[in-house]
Design a binder for these strands. Sequence first.
DNA 1: CTGAAAGCGCTTACAG
DNA 2: CTGAAAGCGCTTACAG
Lengths: 355, 355
Amino acid sequence: MERDLRPSKLTLAAVAAEVGVSAPTVSKVVNGREDVAEATRARVLAALQRTGYKSPLQRKSIPEHRAVEVVFDSLNSAYGVEVLNGVMEHAAVSDMEVILSITGRQAGSPLGPEERAQRLIDEGRAGMIVVTSAFGAAQLEAFKRRQIPIVVVDPLNPPPADVFSVGASNWAGGKAAATHLLELGHRRIAYIGGPSTAECSQARLHGYMAALMAEGVAVDHEYVSDGPFKPENGVRAMKALLALDNPPTAIFAGSDSIALGVLAEARRQNVRIPEEMSLVGFDGTHQAEESVPPLTSVSQPLQEMGRSALSFILRQKNGEEIDSRRVELATHLVVRESTAPPRASNARAAAAVED
Amino acid sequence: MERDLRPSKLTLAAVAAEVGVSAPTVSKVVNGREDVAEATRARVLAALQRTGYKSPLQRKSIPEHRAVEVVFDSLNSAYGVEVLNGVMEHAAVSDMEVILSITGRQAGSPLGPEERAQRLIDEGRAGMIVVTSAFGAAQLEAFKRRQIPIVVVDPLNPPPADVFSVGASNWAGGKAAATHLLELGHRRIAYIGGPSTAECSQARLHGYMAALMAEGVAVDHEYVSDGPFKPENGVRAMKALLALDNPPTAIFAGSDSIALGVLAEARRQNVRIPEEMSLVGFDGTHQAEESVPPLTSVSQPLQEMGRSALSFILRQKNGEEIDSRRVELATHLVVRESTAPPRASNARAAAAVED
DNA sequence: CTGAAAGCGCTTACAG
DNA sequence: CTGAAAGCGCTTACAG
C-alpha cells in the first residue's frame, strides 16, 4: 500500500515528519519548552508557519486574535495615557480590542514569565504592547519562544536586539530644545534629566550637549543632574540650581512633569518664568499646554507611537516581512510661553556672556 | 485492590466510573450525540454538573466572564483616567480583565444597541461599565433585556430608574466649597457650572446656593453660568465675571478643568490667585494638585467610584441580592493654595468699579 | 443503546 | 538536546 506523502491531516506528527524530527520535539516547540536547540526550533517554527499547523485547541478556540494586551507601569502619567490613546485609535480602525493591564497589580500570585506568556496564548491574544520597564529579558524571551508578537514602546532599558520597539528621536529633540534656548540668547542652560540609566534620557542629554558644543558653549557639570521623571525631581533640581553662585538663565527639563516641578518651585521662590528663567519641557503632553504659563516643550508623537506599536503587532501577526525592528518617530519643538530671551538687565547673565 | 471512589483527576473516565457507565457513553453525552438513552443521558448530565467536569478544551479556553468592558467618551480627561485606575485596581484584586473601549471610535460600521449588546454576550463579557453619556435609553434597554450587568458612572443624564449607577455627593460637595469661601469672608461668590442638563452640575449648583442662603447671602444671577466641563468654559466665564461692574471675590468652578481655564485667564489679566481672587475646583484630580497655585478643590473619590462600579458588576454577576441601585460616595474639600480671605481693600475690584 | 477494543493526537519521563 | 517508549484522555468503529 502506497504511503501518502502529503498527509491530508495536518497533525503534529506530520509536521515532525516534514522537518525530519520526532513528534515530541515538535510538541516542545509548539509549547514553548526550553529544551530544544535553537537551530532545531527555527526549522520547526518555519515548518509550522509554512504548513499553518494549529493545535486542536487553536483550531477549536473561538477568540481569533482579536485582542491585544497593553501593559503599563501605571496610568498616572500623561505620557502613558497619550500612548494608550494612540493604541485605542488604531484599534478602532483595525477592529481590535484592547485589554489593559497594569504591572504590579496582578492578583495573589504574580505570574512568572512563562505563565504570563502561556496565558496570553491560551486567551488568544494577537500580541502585547509593553509600555513598562518591568519586563526583563526573561519575559521577552518567553514571548519570543512562543511566537507572540510583542512591541516595546520607548524602552527605558534597551531591549534585546531582536525585539520590536517604537520610540522617538530623543537626541534630535534634546538638540532642538537647547538650540531654541541658545537662539534666544541664553548661554547658561541647565539640563534636568530623567533616570541616568534610561536610554531616552541619555539621548536627550547628548542632544543638549551637542547643541551647546556646536555654539562653543561649555557644558557646566553643575548645570546637569538626573533623577526620576517626576515633579519632585524638578523641585529638587530647581532648588539646587537657584542656590548656585551663578545660576542658569534657562532650564531644559527632561520631561514635562519634571518641568512642572520646576515651575512650582520657581513660583515658590518668586522666580518669574519666562522673564527671569526660561524653561523647556519634553513630551508635549496636555499638561504642558495647560500649565501656567503654557510650557515650551519638545513634543513626542505619543499617539503616533501608540498607533505604530499596534500596527507593528498586526503586521507581525499577518506574517509580513518587516525590514526594521525599530521605528523612531520625529519629535518637534513647540514654542509656547515659558521661554524668552534672557533679560538684558539680568546682570549675572550679562556678565556670563561677556566672559 | 480498592477502587478510589473520589478520583483526584476529574477525567471523563472518572465521571463514567461515578455514574457506572463507560467512558464512550459519557463522551457521547458531552458531545451531544443522539445515540444515548434519555435516562442514561440524564444521569450523566447530572454527574457532569455535580462534578463540574470540563473537557480539556473548556479547561483551556478563556474562562467565561473574566472580562469587563469599560466605555469612555474619551481618555482626554483626568477624570476618566482616575475612574479607570479604580476599575483596574479592583480588577487586579478580583482577577478580572479590563477591555477598554472609546465611544465614537468604532470601526467602519458603528454598532447599534442590539448588535453591541449581542457582541458583549458572544464574547463572554461579565458586564459593562459606562462612563459616557453616549449611551441612551435604547442602549441600556438592550443590555437589560439580555441581562448583561451594567453600571453607569456619574451619569450626565439621569439613567432609567432600574439601572445601577455610581456617583458622588455632588450637592454636599457644592455646599462644602461655598461654605469654605463664606468662612474665609467672601460674600461675592460666583459659580461656573458644567452643562446645565447634567445632574451632577445641577447638584453642585444647588449645594452652592444652599450654602449662600444659609448665610443669608443672595444668589446673584450674574455670578452663575454654565457650559461644558472644559478649560474654555472657565476662560469664557472668567472674562465675563471680570467685566462685571462688581466682580466676585471668589469663584467656585464646577470642575478642575474649568478652574484651570479660570486660572489661565486670571494670569492673562494679571489677577493674582488667591490674593485677588479665590478659586475652588471640583473633582480633585492630579491636575488640581499640580497646578500653580495648587487648587483648593472638592475631591471626588474617583478611584473608589471605579472600584465600586466593578464591584457592582461582580455582585450582579454572582446573582447577589442588591438592595440599592445607586451608590453615592462622599466628596470632601481639600484646601490648597488657591483660596484666601478677600483683601480688606480689594484694590482691583475697587478699580474695576471706578472705571 | 451500550461498551470493549482500537485508535488518535499529543505529552511526559527518561535513557542516551 | 533528542527521540523511543509509555502514557493520557478522549473518540471512533462496531459487535452485541
